Amino acid sequence: MPKMGHLLLSVHIATFLTALPGNVLAFHALLRQVRRRHPTPADVLLLNLATSNLMFLLALLPFKLNEAAESDRLPCFPCTVASFLTCLAVCTGALFLAAVSVDRYLAVAFPLGYYVARRPRHAAMASVVLWAVSSLNLGVAYAIEWWINKGDGGDGAKKNNTTPVPLPPTTPRPSLTCYLNPNADQLGVLVRVRLEVFVVLFGLPLLVCCFCYVNVVLVWARLPNAGRRRRLRAVGQALGTLWVFALCLGPYGVCRVVGAVRQDDGSGWSEVALLAGSFNACLDLVVFYFSSAAVRSSLNSCFKRCLIRAAEAKPFITIR
């Protein structure tokens, strides 16, 4: 495995170990909140966002560990499923971030109508629609990739019309990736589908988030009786969400546009873009913290318990 591959794997493992405990805690807090009698629509949307983060973490790391093992190349079907789940989690996370921003905008800009008409079942129905839209768009893209792979004669050595030969111990093995080598006609279809996925699952959610959070900050700034803490919470939520789009989801979506412009499959930079997308699971904790009182309470209590246990664990020093 090349040095760059070792570096990427190390970052993926560090992201997994950092993001998994926080997302599990947020998922548990939001699930308890949703199971109560009067959950809010934001709780339902944030629960789905935490679910997409956990799916991303659990689908990505085993896939990368298999690549690091430098064993045989994954068969086509497991490779496609793992890649589909990873992309589904990233794209669905972008849609739910946009849905949370719409919920916050309606609550601030139209408070009376929002509090009269809000129902948790509306958020649940919207969640089902968002999962369906993301699954259908990515399903079409991966169905085309599957068709391309079958058209090229299968996976692994069959795609390149070569016979697998055992490598000597001193010979570096090829990079274990799942990207295809489509011909010109197939690439034209694949690039157009990926560009449509970028517009629907990245471009539109980004525009919605920018519009909603800019207006949320402006409304809070105009309210004379708004508390300083509530204003800072609104600004923190807006900056956290836009930071997630810029740092994490942006590179993952831009690589699709660059691939469409350059007319290639984007395999040269998709690994780095996926690495940036993995930080999404970490930075979403900022959105959870500023958006949900249940998550704030759980994180604060967990932090206080850790401090108490650290203070109680006094070292025993024996002087002879």
Rank of each mutant, 00 (worst) to 15 (best):
K3V: 15
L8Y: 15
L8N: 12
L9Y: 08
I13N: 05
T15V: 14
L20Y: 07
P21Y: 05
A26S: 13
F27K: 11
R32T: 12
Q33D: 13
R35F: 06
T40C: 08
L45C: 07
L47E: 04
L49H: 04
A50R: 06
A50D: 02
A50K: 04
L54N: 04
M55C: 13
L58C: 11
P62L: 02
L65V: 07
N66D: 13
A68C: 03
A68S: 09
D72T: 15
R73A: 13
C76T: 11
C79L: 11
S83T: 12
C87Y: 14
L88A: 12
V90D: 05
C91F: 07
T92H: 11
L95F: 11
Y105P: 02
L112K: 10
G113P: 03
Y114E: 04
V116G: 10
R118N: 03
S127K: 08
V128T: 15
L136W: 15
A141T: 12
Y142C: 07
K150V: 14
G154N: 09
K158R: 15
K159V: 13
K159G: 12
T162S: 12
V165G: 06
V165L: 05
P168H: 02
T170Q: 11
T171G: 00
T171R: 05
P172T: 05
R173Q: 15
R173D: 09
L176Y: 10
C178K: 01
P182N: 07
A184N: 10
D185E: 12
D185F: 11
L187S: 09
G188S: 09
R192T: 14
F198M: 11
V200G: 04
P205Q: 02
L206Q: 08
L218S: 14
A221C: 09
L223G: 10
R229P: 02
V244P: 00
L247M: 09
G250T: 07
Y252E: 01
V254K: 10
G259V: 08
G259Y: 02
V261W: 13
V261R: 14
Q263P: 10
D265C: 03
D265R: 03
G266D: 03
G268H: 14
W269Q: 07
S270T: 14
L285P: 00
V286S: 05
V287N: 05
F288A: 09
S292F: 03
S292M: 03
A293P: 14
R296M: 06
N300E: 14
C302F: 15
C302H: 12
R305H: 06
C306I: 15
C306H: 10
A310T: 08
A313Y: 15
T318S: 01
